[in-house]
Design a protein around this nucleic acid. Structure first.
Lengths: 325, 325
DNA sequence: TTGAAAGCGCTAACAA
DNA sequence: TTGTTAGCGCTTTCAA
């Protein structure tokens, strides 16, 4: 397969016998060109296999018609829903979505923002650990919408953590638990801080004792250490930073012969792929991730200013939580 | 946050008092500019916050330094390893990877190839269902490497399906199974066809009876129909098109009270996230997906021609397979 | 409704 | 080692 030169707008213009600018208009402002001329142009373009070059288009107009979605770990199923929702919304707007994986690294995050910046119209950013200052700087050069994080003067879509944590605490209280332990994720995580703050407040209102342990890696591998700490503490209810950690904890508890939920109840956050078929199926706080992804795009594309959108959440009760021993 | 104009190469040139082309060289061919001049340029660029514009760069040079990886469903954990491997390899080469999700649709696939085509140096393409002709056309305009699929004259990285299917059949034979049923995925799937062909051949060599049922959706939702068909057939061993389907099958079997592996053994392909913590943990054929992803990039970047790279596989034996009843 | 011409930010000969 | 000069493919005034 040899690479063939792509036909350009000029080739099409020559083919039809019009000026290049007319071809350009035929594609970008169809109303401003004679329907018959336009028809001929479209046919010639089709015949030659012409496709507009986005880079060239971007240079002339400043618009790129692409949006970048940056996530810390594309492997984490939590982001699947976000991606799907964003994709659909972007597609509906006739634009293109590119995905970037920042590998949980603020450095990669910064690099992608820098490199992709000039090439996109805006960013949807799930960056729990990037410093505020960097977020603000990015927002200076591109439109930016943050996911599950609030930075003043930057648009954002956040889950309703207050309601979320209240649902978790109410559920545990209704099962007779008098205390809970929170197995925390990374210290810099904005949403992690919200979760803990909400749990603590809700627990106090219920006269429950809430303890925080950690930080632990928010991954399956974080499970063993977290589970051991929880076992040592002897709590009857364990709330995990996210489902990845929760599933890791479940495995370790199983290995250690601790019965779930008879001896200890386990609750996660996110309702990721796998949460309903791990063993036992995990009780977890689900965000409407597809809606959140779509909302972020909607804000980016159509809502100027820096609105904050609150996304609803819902507790999925499964077999990993049960009555207190 | 108001959007500020990005500084250009010209701004930097003016700041230092050199020509724009010198600034360009300072970034692209560092050897061809006086170290002191270069130092000044770099400092000025830093000071002004200058970042090269990839679109403009692409126009001048024809190179974009970005690679696109297109997958049918970014949500499918099978592709996580591919993505990770590709990312690392691309990063190591100092280039940028953009991801595209084709939503299992040949139409979206074609659209992304078209739109992204002029904006990238090449594609790594996991497109099991795109017609051969479209694949070839894409390879005419860009460098293309196919994943788990062979199209003549196009570079590709494929799992060693012959060895893979032999491992599966040998495993089942060693457990005393005399027949197996294959629950097929989409009819157009290239790898699905390979899997069935390999199973059939290996089974014949072992004097086992192999039956194919389907097609079924290669997703959790495909599970119920596939499981029912397998139950009706009364086979002692079920091999599924992929793990998503296999996990769906496991769930249905559990709902129907069929014990795994006592009454029926279940085997999948892919070893996705979740395969080791579903219930029971799934015996499955693992590809070295990270290596495959990295190999695809390596071929794209450094190996001209249309080589075919064979990626090794390995059977992960877990609790879903056991002795024949 | 169309064409001519300038310019987007950068690279790449070509001279100097 | 550096500057000058054309473009790259497209959009966008401005005129006609």
């Amino acid at each position: 397969m040899t690479i063939r030169r792509r036909p350009t707008i000029t080739d099409v213009a020559a083919e039809v016998g019009v000026a290049a600018s007319t071809v350009s208009r035929a594609f970008t402002v169809p109303g401003r060109v004679n329907p018959r001329t336009r028809q001929q142009i479209l046919e010639a373009a089709e015949r030659l296999g012409y496709v507009p070059n986005p880079a060239a288009r971007a240079m002339g107009s400043g618009r790129t018609d692409t949006i970048a979605l940056l996530v810390p770990d594309i492997t984490n199923p939590f982001f699947s829903g976000i991606i799907k929702g964003a994709e659909r919304a972007v597609g509906a707007a006739g634009k293109t979505l590119v995905l970037g994986d920042t590998e949980e690294s603020p450095a990669v995050e910064a690099r992608l923002l820098e490199r992709l910046g000039p090439a996109v119209d805006g960013f949807v950013l799930a960056a729990p650990r990037l410093p505020d200052a960097d977020v603000r700087r990015a927002a200076t050069l591109n439109r930016v919408v943050l996911l599950n994080r609030v930075v003043s003067d930057v648009a954002c879509v956040v889950a309703d953590y207050e309601s979320a944590t209240r649902q978790v605490v109410d559920h545990l209280a209704s099962l007779g638990h008098r205390e809970l332990v929170f197995l925390a994720g990374p210290a810099e995580s904005w949403s992690g801080a919200q979760r803990w703050a909400g749990l603590e407040t809700a627990a106090r209102a219920r006269r429950m004792v809430a303890t925080r342990l950690g930080p632990y890696a928010p991954t399956l591998d974080g499970g063993p250490a977290a589970a051991e700490a929880a076992i040592a503490l002897g709590s009857s209810a364990v709330v995990c930073h996210n489902d990845m950690l929760a599933i890791g904890v479940l495995r370790r508890l199983a290995d250690r012969g601790v019965r779930v939920p008879d001896e200890v109840s386990v609750v996660g956050f996110d309702d990721i792929f796998g949460a309903d078929f791990c063993h036992p199926p995990l009780t977890t706080l689900a965000e409407r991730t597809q809606e959140a992804g779509a909302a972020a795009i909607e804000v980016l594309l159509h809502r100027p200013g820096s609105p904050t959108v609150i996304a609803p959440t819902e507790l999925k009760i499964r077999a990993s939580s049960g009555p207190a021993a």
